[in-house]
Design a protein around this nucleic acid. Structure first.
Lengths: 186, 186, 186, 186
DNA sequence: ACATACGGGACGCCCCGTTTAT
DNA sequence: ATAAACGGGGCGTCCCGTATGT
């Protein structure tokens, strides 16, 4: 049943109704409400699973490299591939933050937690890679990745995310310790 | 009346109904439907005005500098200020693309046109600044900016966008003609 | 809209749903819920109107006679005619008491009030007619009338209610003051 | 299991669901559906048993007397006692006719058959008692009894049925052959 | 035989965008 | 311009009858 929640990913939470979900999933409404007492719980369950899948996806990209900085770049190379795939609809947590602006709402908190965990992963890799200001690097890479996800929604499969990896490389390079860059003083 | 469309910006299109708009604006529903035959037209009108305002905001940031590359960076410095303002809710066109996934929908087209115009502006400045691959620079800066807007929605006023300007600087620097960066070959 | 509540009379409250009402009445569901906040309120409104109509029907039957005892019998002659009409479905308050057994429910209270008012009317006429034990007469006539209504539901238009008037006459005659009947000692 | 069908008597057929029955009876739903293929069959089985029990109750009241007319009155004396008992909820066949208006429905037919058999019993006793127009007497007594059952539902244990026996006596007396009553000509 | 679940359908209440009277 | 009406849809609940495991 939860697999039928791809509708949430493709169309958003408000646009897809419970009836649509049960009709597409071929199950009865009572079956759904037996597992999830309300639609919000269903949304949160979907988000938590998406959270786990996303972090696993990140770790898979990390696993292909050993150098921390290369691991960071590997994530963005995977992002470039993912964001240009025809089935990609961007980041589900962005729509969550948009549809649930209340920061105390459970769905918003799951989305925020995902971003914070990703931020921590970025910062950790940046620290391991000896980069200066790992938190700043994480901030910037996080924005870059989210911008790529936005581009998917906005432009479709042919989007600027093809160039996201080199942008990440520029950001990483700008924080490498041995170099002096004009950007540092901005 | 159209001023009451700030609700769209703060809460989204689906979350705010016409009843709320007319109630907040203190006008009758007929009055609204006299000016805008349907809600979609109201949305599109709002988006077009937001489009103009946004491009004007970009030009104001550009106007403070003369060097094209500095103009690019000036935009992102203004972005950093805007994105950390308490009244900023991010980019209205992102929510538009999320709520209207159909690329043929009028609202989506207005949003897409805004991004394309901004991309062209970025590319133009990059070309004027003598940067290599201006389109790539524009792609990357566009993603960076959208990522900053996302951060606003996700994190609130205290968000990673404080560091967006230096990321833009890194991207710009990576495409300056006189330098050879390892990132280029990524 | 309320006129479409004849469905309640013919089929009962639980058997007819809101959708059926609005579909048969050709109105929108919101139109109904604008006038009646809930289905129970609609039921109560219907019952109150039925209460008024019924009491008016009683007074019309009473108006054709001047002698109180004849007025009582006139009611039951009208009842015999009504109960054998093809469009009569019996007494709506009986079904109300059956579907809302809780005596504190608004619908049940309206139904009960109707019976009590009818009882008082019977007792008043019996007292005016000089009958002994007017309350007992009212009790008995009330049961007789309700039995006639039951017969309508049970047997359809061809039902024992054709003989309800002479039964009422027997009950009235049994309480006439000048006679001594064996029934008195029962 | 069938004993749990007292719920039908107290609350009606539509108001009590299969789940409630099996929960109150402490059995599994499959067990119920092994004995009764559908809820309607369960209802009909309940009604048939209630029919037998009711007729047995009538015969018990009849058995206490020998004179046919006294037997009739004995039934109504028993009715008065039954109708004022706190556990009495009226006549189950009335609710049946109300919830199944279709005369061809099995439940309605069982209810109708019960009334017809009771009517025949009344008519038989009236004939044995030498009353004039035994069918009319049966009609009237049937209505009177049903009215008493209605009063139970409507008024609760303290209801007009306390006076049902003397009403029956009046009806019977009105049809005794030796007397001439004005009521006969109504 | 029990208990849990399922599929299908209906229902109650509610909200939305839109149009029509007044 | 106020107010009501309209059709459509959505969410959460309930029920009936069947199909599972054990």
């Amino acid at each position: 049943l939860s697999t039928a929640s791809r509708l949430f990913y493709e169309q958003g939470f408000g646009a897809v109704g419970v009836d649509t979900i049960v009709a597409r999933a071929g199950v009865a409404k009572m079956t759904l409400y037996r597992h999830f007492p309300t639609k919000d719980e269903l949304i949160i369950s979907y988000l938590k699973r998406a959270d786990e899948r996303f972090l696993r996806w990140v770790e898979e990209a990390v696993a292909s490299e050993t150098d921390p900085c290369e691991q960071l770049l590997s994530i963005f190379r995977a992002l470039a591939r993912q964001a240009t795939s025809p089935t990609c609809c961007g980041c589900p947590f962005q729509g969550t933050a948009a549809e649930f602006p209340d920061p105390n709402h459970g769905a918003h908190r799951v989305a925020l937690a995902n971003k914070q965990r990703l931020h921590a992963r970025f910062a950790g890799l940046a620290w391991l890679g000896g980069l200066r200001a790992p938190d700043v690097v994480a901030d910037q890479l996080l924005m870059l990745m989210d911008g790529a996800w936005v581009a998917v929604r906005m432009f479709g499969p042919n989007n600027p995310a093809v160039n996201v990896a080199s942008a990440a490389a520029a950001i990483v390079a700008a924080h490498e310790p041995k170099r002096r860059m004009a950007a540092d003083s901005v």
